[in-house]
């Protein structure tokens, strides 16, 4: 996975609650058998005015100028502000893949759907949780201030505003460790091969029907 340490990036506000994974990356793009190339189709239905299909030249499509992602002032954004229950819906890891492929490295929201949260961390996309009051302030400042940038420091677990205000966030130790070091979780688990084998052997004895076929 990609490491995440510290970043100062342009901020884009996505002021909607319950943004689901179907909205983040629409089903027709899930037919890909690769992990990359989803960036041009992030938020496809909101971002373009014409319907999209895989294999199209998306640069030729009609864009929706009202959608925040298309506004000139947010081009190159790396940090996204979102509202409650971001990433709800399906387990598609294509959601964080497309956010990352577009260029986002961190999301800040009051809450996330569980599977999306996990999937993000496994790809080096940092989902930060801040309370609704802090979110309201960040949304306001971002909208009022062209070129608004936030500094996200994972080691310190802080988000720092341009005015120097420091907001602390929580993240559990294991996930933080993996993200900071870009660790391969499978490699970590395979350090415990013997324990898995012992467990499996016991289970095979206690519940042999689980291994019957």
């Amino acid at each position: 996975m990609q490491k995440f340490e510290k970043l100062t990036g342009l901020v884009m506000p996505l002021d909607r609650g319950n943004v689901d994974t179907d909205a983040i990356i629409a089903k027709q793009y899930l037919k890909s058998i690769h992990r990359t190339g989803f960036g041009p189709n992030l938020f496809d239905d909101w971002r373009y005015l014409d319907p999209g299909e895989p294999g199209m030249d998306h640069s030729q499509r009609r864009i929706n100028p009202d959608f925040v992602l298309n506004q000139p002032r947010y081009q190159g954004a790396q940090v996204m502000l979102a509202r409650d229950n971001f990433g709800c819906g399906s387990s598609r890891e294509h959601a964080p893949w497309s956010l990352m492929d577009y260029g986002f490295r961190a999301i800040i929201a009051p809450s996330y759907a569980d599977i999306f949260y996990n999937n993000s961390i496994k790809n080096g996309l940092l989902p930060i949780v801040l309370d609704s009051a802090a979110m309201d302030q960040l949304f306001r400042e971002t909208e009022e201030t062209p070129g608004y940038r936030l500094t996200v420091d994972l080691a310190a677990q802080t988000v720092t505003t341009p005015a120097g205000k420091v907001l602390k966030f929580e993240i559990d130790a294991f996930r933080k460790h993996c993200l900071l070091n870009g660790l391969d979780e499978i490699g970590l688990t395979l350090q415990h091969v013997d324990e898995i084998k012992t467990f499996e052997a016991r289970r095979r004895k206690e519940a042999p029907w689980l291994f019957a076929k």
Partner: peptide
């Protein structure tokens, strides 16, 4: 690798959806 895996919990099982990285993790380590 599908969020509606929760369906199988109807039988007193612990069933849940996972992302693709976790699919790979299960394939490799169970």
């Amino acid at each position: 690798g599908d969020s509606h895996t929760s369906t199988h919990g109807a039988f007193g099982a612990l069933a849940f959806g996972i992302g693709t990285s976790e699919v790979e993790h299960v394939l490799a380590t169970q």
